[in-house]
Amino acid sequence: MAPPADDWFGKAFSKAWKDKAEEIGRFNLAIFGKTGVGKSTLVNAIFGEEIAATGIGEPVTRAEHLYLHRSGTLGVLDTRGLEVGRDNAKLINELNDYLHGMRRKPLAEQIHVAWYCVRSGDRRFEPTEGEFIRALHDLGLPVILVLTQVPRAGVRVHPDAEALAASIAAMDLPIEGGLIHYTMARGDEFTGQTAYGLQELLDATFRGAPSGVAHAITAAQQIDFVRKRDRAETAIKAATGAATTAGASPIPFSDAAILVPIQLTMMASIAVTYGIPIERSTAASIAATAAATTAGRSLVGNLIKFVPGAGTAVAGTINATVAGTFTYAMGHAWLRVCERLARGELRMVGGALDSEKIHKLFLDEFKVSASRRKLPS
């Protein structure tokens, strides 16, 4: 249980996190292919293990052959009990009914992209699979075709996979970009085979999906930290501008907590973007900022003294430049914490968050970022 002094901050951060998660919405991926092609392995490799923990998901049709797994900013639509190629008509009918009703719902409730997966070791692609892909396209779903478990030596993929891809390409299927993506979702230390093709598949998914779910994809995926950082930088820039505007008329330090909602929204946006669950990011935010008091004044008072050029702000007023620099430094310090958390770091033995390490990292990064953004003398 959080100590009483942190209770206000924890509740405020949790609310901001929920609001931001709702604003970002959810990316919904439909994934198809024959049994055993490695669909779950591929999803887990790009989006992390959280989706697997949700189990079979919930049925979305009365026939109970389509299941939607929900996990934060990701939804995965999968099939159960029917086989592509053998049960095409039933699957397409159920999909048609589902997609028809779904299009009246908000964007976050719609299916945005379909992956169709083919295991390269099968060495064949049935005509009925091509028919299924054409039917998905006719239903309005962008289809990305993925060859899974493709062995590679250096930059050369296995000749059998190349031959399979050539035979599929000859069918002139309506797939995104006309591309067939080679992937190996999981490496093998024994054979020396490394994972590859995941970034290219993720890039294709961004291209195929509506622009309105780009932030949700960025938050859900766990391999492209450049995209996450770019989104986080956008949130920091917006918050820095808002704080600068708030300080255009100098803020008496006694009223400095007016900056806290701006910073909470920024921190929540960064945490959601990095895919840090609400409980973990709330605990980390308390540890990072060492926040206390119901007014949030200590959040400002504990940190602003590290802003070069702030001078006697604590005793007097906070101007626009100080407010902007303070928020900028706070954002970049929190970004660094979230980045390390998303990579599975900052934990003690047993898995609990290392609060001391989090606070030290945050404070060190805050000082560096504050000094980097020079204040006018």
Rank of each mutant, 00 (worst) to 15 (best):
188 D>G: 10
10 G>P: 00
110 Q>G: 02
95 L>Q: 02
34 K>L: 11
229 R>M: 03
333 A>T: 04
89 A>K: 13
194 T>I: 09
10 G>I: 05
335 L>V: 08
44 N>C: 02
311 G>R: 15
35 T>H: 12
136 L>H: 03
244 T>V: 10
154 G>P: 08
316 G>T: 12
369 S>M: 09
288 A>W: 02
7 D>A: 15
375 L>G: 04
54 T>C: 05
154 G>I: 10
237 K>C: 09
50 E>A: 09
251 I>H: 11
70 R>D: 14
67 Y>M: 15
147 L>G: 03
185 A>T: 13
374 K>C: 00
299 L>P: 01
315 A>Q: 14
295 A>T: 13
131 E>W: 11
133 I>E: 03
352 A>K: 09
101 G>L: 12
90 K>L: 11
51 I>K: 05
34 K>S: 11
179 L>P: 03
44 N>R: 05
74 L>V: 07
337 V>C: 06
131 E>S: 14
229 R>E: 14
229 R>V: 01
372 R>W: 03
8 W>K: 12
180 I>N: 12
210 P>M: 00
373 R>W: 04
66 L>P: 11
265 T>G: 14
68 L>G: 11
340 R>W: 06
28 N>Q: 13
136 L>F: 09
47 F>A: 05
181 H>W: 13
82 L>C: 04
325 T>Q: 12
57 G>Q: 10
376 P>Q: 08
145 L>P: 03
179 L>V: 15
271 A>S: 15
112 H>C: 05
242 A>R: 15
229 R>N: 08
348 M>E: 09
238 A>P: 02
81 G>Y: 04
231 R>P: 00
180 I>Y: 06
106 P>A: 04
314 V>P: 03
347 R>T: 13
64 E>T: 14
134 R>W: 07
123 R>H: 06
266 M>S: 04
341 L>G: 10
322 V>C: 05
112 H>M: 02
191 T>N: 12
103 R>M: 09
27 F>S: 00
172 D>L: 08
358 I>W: 02
18 K>D: 13
13 F>G: 02
273 T>Q: 08
232 A>N: 10
31 I>G: 14
225 F>A: 04
335 L>I: 07
290 A>P: 00
